[in-house]
Design a protein around this nucleic acid. Structure first.
Length: 178
DNA sequence: GTATCGATGATCT
DNA sequence: GATCATCGATACC
């Protein structure tokens, strides 16, 4: 009864809040509980998949569980988990509450402020060591773990951040307790 | 505390 | 040639 990533992105985005995402194994493992996500679909003018698969957005049309990583503003990376059914849907991971490998992540980000360590899509990828080489890989083949939430989480909903189209669509989800 | 702005380059039109 | 699914620094209140 884990997550079903074949569902529509808004549903998966909601369910991912409170799940534990871990990257790497053993001493190198790092990650935490997902606290903020956004959904994107092919029907959605704000989505990279809106005009069909392109060189950049190709991964969004791959199997559920595929990673879609893109570079933004010439310097930052953002991580999505593909969902749906090869139909251009994905969930942007925007925030984590770090639990594992905190020392490693602080070193990668050259920062000790826990609040800024993994909150924000580009901060999170930097902390986890994610870059374009992860784009198109599948969760299952990258030694990643994605565990369903083990307890109830209070989730709030609102409009997505940093977009200029479909600005009122309430497809941002974020944990409001703890 | 909030507001604004520059960095920096791939992607798509 | 314009637009970014952002961040961090700086300025100002």
């Amino acid at each position: 009864m884990g997550l079903n990533l074949s569902q529509p992105a808004p549903l998966v985005a909601r369910e991912l809040i409170g799940c534990e995402l871990l990257v790497g194994t053993g001493e190198a493992a790092c990650g935490g509980f997902i606290t903020e996500t956004e959904a994107y679909t092919a029907d959605d003018p704000a989505s990279h998949s809106f005009r069909g698969p392109t060189k950049r957005s190709r991964a969004m049309f791959m199997a559920p569980g595929t990673l879609y990583v893109y570079k933004i503003y010439g310097m930052h990376y953002c991580l999505n988990i593909v969902c749906g059914d090869h139909d251009g849907q994905a969930v942007l991971i925007r925030g984590l509450r770090p639990t594992t490998g905190i020392e490693i992540m602080m070193k990668r980000r050259a920062m000790t402020n826990i609040k800024l360590l993994t909150s924000g899509p580009a901060r999170l990828t930097q902390a986890l060591g994610i870059d374009l080489s992860f784009n198109g890989l599948h969760l299952d083949v990258v030694a990643w773990k994605l565990r369903a939430a083990d307890r109830a989480v209070t989730v709030s909903v609102g409009p997505r951040v940093g977009i200029s189209k479909a600005v009122d669509v309430p497809w941002r989800f974020y944990a409001t307790d703890v």
